[in-house]
Design a protein around this nucleic acid. Structure first.
Lengths: 249, 249
DNA sequence: CGCATATTTGATAGATTTCAATTTATGTGG
DNA sequence: CCACATAAATTGAAATCTATCAAATATGCG
């Protein structure tokens, strides 16, 4: 049961990697075998703080995480959301001190993956290094897209674009009408989009009135995927590569 | 002469890498030997467009580049600046199609580095893969910091923070009073900070009146590094790691 | 049922954009 | 070296967007 879900999350993680990097069966198996140390993080808590010494990365098994960055004047910016199957701190493979704070929005189960485990794997299978390196690149692409989203779009489009990303990254079928699990508060959304909570609230009401999206009951409800994409000027190309690659190893 | 400058830029590139990754002499030599194909890009021109097929990365030898992302409604966001010694498209090692547009702000000389060359090097010296992977991570960290800067700070602090980053990344000595070469227009600055050019103009005047910074004659003039850092709430930790590492290979 | 958290509302202040025009710099050919 | 053309910087005024503040309502959870 619990183990079943572990495996499922690691399978999601592997599938995501296979979406961008070609790996042989033994390499795939090496990644699946990372499943060893599961732990649970209570909701509404920073469980890694920027600067903390870290010797493992993790994969989200269940729940929702945010990567945050707080400014000198006490403001808070969410710079990414991480869902089951995501590796929120792939950066930790390259730095012994955490490069960002990780905040559990809901109670979250994670699989810890020691850097030493990854080191053994990449030394045996260099293509795994390529896979994680590409994962790092894609994480950076998302950050770049967020910069453009926050810098150039106004409130409604900004929120719509974020919801598009969440929908696109979640595995759900996106044709016409659907919904996506996304248990954020409006304050979380404000921190992610660089807006005030009040303005988020009013923008959400407007988006609902436009029949573009409805955020309630921990879900994003979408009437028409096409309409949402248009409202958010969304092009998901930045989330991946056209086909699985193996360019260096 | 020209070759001297080539070597100098590649040495800058190597020095930057050595700032975050420990490499042995033969590995260092392999990176320096990437200097082969230099070319020149006229100013005010996109020389790589998002989606273009690419089989090489490059290192800036002389000039200034911006990485840009344009939205569906025609607005333009600069997501990074690249100076001599920087590799603006380390992403290209991981993707056969350009993940972002590169725009030459001034006429710029670049060293092209074919992916095949890097592939040979990383297969012989896996630590070079680690170095470039770490470079990719740091590039992502900068994007994350920009997200927070644009999302959370108001005009003056936003510009000050950007200028801090440029100063910190340029090699110049930053104690008390100094200047940094940064040949951007106010429109470039607007595209980078997510503001209107008019507001950039007025914010620059205010920053000048505050004796925080003065942007003129293609340079950032700083009276007091401490004052600028404070105005931009700047902490440069995101630009590197505390000491050179070799964690995986 | 009752506390704590999240959402919603109204009113106001503030920051930023837009538009349009002017001035100032920059570079180029004669 | 000047005259011209072009690009960049600057200004003023008005419109718009967004933040802030304070209070009320709703929601979820023990």
């Amino acid at each position: 049961m619990q183990l079943g879900q572990k495996s499922h999350a690691m399978q999601q993680f592997l599938d995501k990697i296979l979406g961008h990097t070609r790996l042989y069966a033994d390499e795939q198996q090496a990644i699946l075998s990372f499943s060893e140390f599961e732990s649970v993080v209570p909701g509404d808590r920073d469980f890694v703080r920027r600067g903390d010494s870290v010797n493992s990365s993790c994969v989200v098994v269940e729940g929702l995480l945010a990567r945050t960055r707080s400014t000198g004047s006490g403001k808070n910016q969410i710079t990414a959301f991480y869902m089951p199957g995501d590796m929120p701190d792939v950066h930790a493979l390259m730095s012994p001190s955490a490069t960002a704070t990780l905040h559990a929005i809901t109670p979250t189960r994670i699989m810890r993956i020691p850097r030493a485990t990854v080191r053994s794997a990449v030394q045996k299978y260099p293509a795994i290094a390529e896979a994680f390196w590409r994962e790092t690149m894609l994480d950076g692409m998302i950050a770049m897209e967020w910069t453009a989203n926050i810098g150039q779009r106004q409130a409604k489009a900004r929120i719509a674009h974020l919801c598009c990303e969440i929908a696109a990254r979640s595995g759900v079928e996106k044709s016409g009408k659907f919904r996506v699990f996304f248990p954020v508060t409006q304050v979380n959304l404000a921190d992610a989009t660089g807006m005030s909570p009040v303005h988020v609230n009013r923008s959400l009401q407007a988006l609902r009135a436009d029949n573009v999206l409805d955020l309630r009951e921990h879900h994003i409800y979408v009437q028409e995927w096409g309409a949402l994409k248009e409202a958010g000027e969304f092009d998901g190309a930045y989330l991946g590569v056209p086909e699985p690659l193996r360019l260096l190893f």
